[in-house]
């Protein structure tokens, strides 16, 4: 496709990032297609959330390019970065709702900050967004009165309040009951398709991700180890990917933390 608009919304090239001595990303290449749901998977602590923060410009990489809609995020000025962020939504693991505002005001927050819409229009927009996540009736509740799943849905309504071009989900299924997981899965799909969004889902929940993602990237040891559709990944030859998908306790990722031989350890005591 040789159009001006590249078919990839996010392009990451040779990304390197370290926290002190610890190398998190050691040459990551990633392409996130427009209008699709792309999942980034990997074990806990591999830096999946860090990757979202790098894409949102909250962290600076040590080297490499992060292009979002053609703009190199690390080299943007503050004002340009803030302009870009208005078109990116992010759903935090905790929801990150403002605890001093009720549900309605939480969803209205980005509208009030970035637009000068008259009050009746703000009200209509907020109610429509809340309707989309099924919580129009909960508009007067405070965040402390919501369940974890409801808080995430409110946060989702807030994240799409400005009709962004993309939305990033940080572990959207973690710690939720099966019904809520189903609701969130359907919402991610529906928002993606109905609003023409590009979705990036960071998660380690294999079953849920393979059910909704169009494309999956597997990250381990600071690198992308496998990429492809859920079906390709199921057939992957990589023993690491097979262990991750099947959840086998032992394999390339060992069950034991490195330790000397057990017999010798016991005798030395």
């Amino acid at each position: 496709m040789a159009t001006q608009r590249p078919s990839y919304l996010v392009q990451i090239r040779d990304l390197r990032f370290a926290r002190g001595e610890r190398v998190i990303f050691d040459g990551v290449d990633l392409d996130i297609p427009r209008g699709r749901i792309t999942a980034i998977m990997g074990p806990s602590g591999v830096g999946k959330t860090t990757l979202l923060h790098l894409m949102g410009g909250r962290l600076r990489p040590d080297a490499g390019k992060i292009l979002v809609d053609g703009q190199d995020v690390p080299s943007l000025s503050r004002a340009a970065l803030y302009r870009l962020r208005r078109r990116m939504g992010m759903l935090f693991q905790t929801g990150a709702l403002f605890t001093d505002l009720d549900v309605f005001e939480n969803v209205a927050f980005p509208l009030r900050e970035h637009t000068r819409l008259p009050e009746p229009m703000v009200r209509d927009l907020v109610l429509l967004k809340l309707e989309a996540v099924g919580l129009r009736g909960a508009r007067n509740l405070m965040p402390s009165e919501l369940s974890g799943g409801m808080a995430r849905r409110v946060a989702l309504a807030r994240a799409v309040a400005l009709d962004p071009m993309m939305i990033m989900y940080d572990e959207p299924f973690t710690g939720q009951d099966p019904i809520t997981v189903g609701v969130i899965m359907r919402l991610i799909r529906r928002l993606n398709d109905a609003q023409g969004l590009t979705s990036v889902v960071v998660s380690h929940d294999v079953e849920e991700v393979t059910a909704i993602a169009d494309l999956i990237y597997m990250i381990s040891g600071g690198k992308v180890v496998e990429a492809g559709s859920p079906q390709t990944l199921q057939r992957s030859a990589s023993p690491w990917v097979r262990q991750f998908i099947s959840g086998a306790p032992d394999g390339p990722v060992p069950f034991h933390y490195p330790a000397p031989d057990l017999a010798r350890d016991l005798l030395e005591g």
Binding site: R58, R85, R86, M90, F109, P110, E113, H114
Partner: peptide, 8 residues
């Protein structure tokens, strides 16, 4: 962090 990501 959420506020920052909402460009505020």
């Amino acid at each position: 962090a959420g506020m920052e990501m909402m460009a505020v």
